[in-house]
Amino acid sequence: MLSYTEENYLKALLKLSFQNEDKPEAGTNEMAAYLGVKPATATDMLKKLKEKELVTYKKYGKILLTESGRKSGIAILRKHRLWETFLYEKLDFSWDEVHEVAEQLEHIQSAKLVDKLEEFLNFPEFDPHGDPIPKANGEMPELAKSLLSELQVGELCRVAAVKDTSTLFLQYLEKLSITIGSQLRVIDVVPFDGSLSIQIETEEPRSVSMKFAESLFVQRI
């Protein structure tokens, strides 16, 4: 059985591999920064994961999940995103609250409980932030990959997922009444700094920063 920390490392490596699709690997410093630990701490844990044949890793080299490590990472991610969905849909947690609680619940080991949870939720494909939920066999729905910042003036879209899931950004989206599925139209783009004027549903246009536009995945309509 894996420790909570080992599971957290596998999940983090899996997420980093999603970000680096062309090269599904990570460096020790990148891994440490992602988890908020010192490189030496990350190195010690990677050695343990290598001994368990969950990663391939050489000193100063890249880290890559083995097939077994990837399978374990996907199982943890599946639990996390199902629990987030449960908390959001059934217990009325806000989408900026679910992550921290799901971090605790994802370490429950009962596979039957997870399968029952998925069935209870009617087999959701995406969590409250729009992230794809792995199926029991490891397959995942495809995530929209267009960013709001890539749209041209006049284009219409729907919010598909949140790239930045920080509490501050999620709370800002709530303040703007933006959630998954919200309809946005690009009204104008400022050449100087890339900031955008957008219309949210039928509200009056408002200005958002380039950083904001680079933090939302959308689907063109």
Rank of each mutant, 00 (worst) to 15 (best):
F217K: 11
M210Q: 14
F212M: 04
L176V: 08
L170F: 08
T165P: 08
S207F: 06
S197W: 15
L147K: 15
Q152V: 01
F120H: 06
E214Q: 15
H129N: 09
D188G: 08
E150V: 01
L176K: 15
P205L: 13
L196H: 13
P191W: 11
L196F: 14
T202V: 03
S207L: 11
L143W: 00
E139D: 15
S215W: 06
T165F: 02
M210K: 15
S209I: 04
E139Q: 12
S146C: 07
G138T: 05
N122V: 00
V218H: 05
T167C: 00
Q171A: 10
S177E: 14
L176E: 14
M140K: 12
F212E: 09
L147M: 09
S166E: 09
E201D: 15
E155W: 02
E204L: 13
D188Q: 13
S209P: 02
S215H: 05
E201H: 05
M210P: 01
E150M: 12
I178R: 11
L156G: 06
D193R: 01
A136S: 14
A160E: 09
E214V: 00
N137A: 01
S182E: 11
V159A: 08
I198R: 04
L148G: 06
Q152G: 06
Q199Y: 02
D131S: 06
S182D: 12
L184V: 14
I198L: 09
D188F: 08
T179M: 05
K135I: 01
D127Y: 04
T165H: 07
L148S: 06
Q171D: 00
K163S: 03
P124R: 03
L121D: 06
D131A: 09
A160R: 03
V186R: 02
V190Y: 14
K145W: 05
A213Q: 07
E150P: 01
S149I: 01
D188K: 13
E201W: 01
P132I: 03
K211H: 10
S182A: 15
A160T: 05
G154A: 12
R158E: 14
E203R: 15
F192Y: 12
F212T: 08
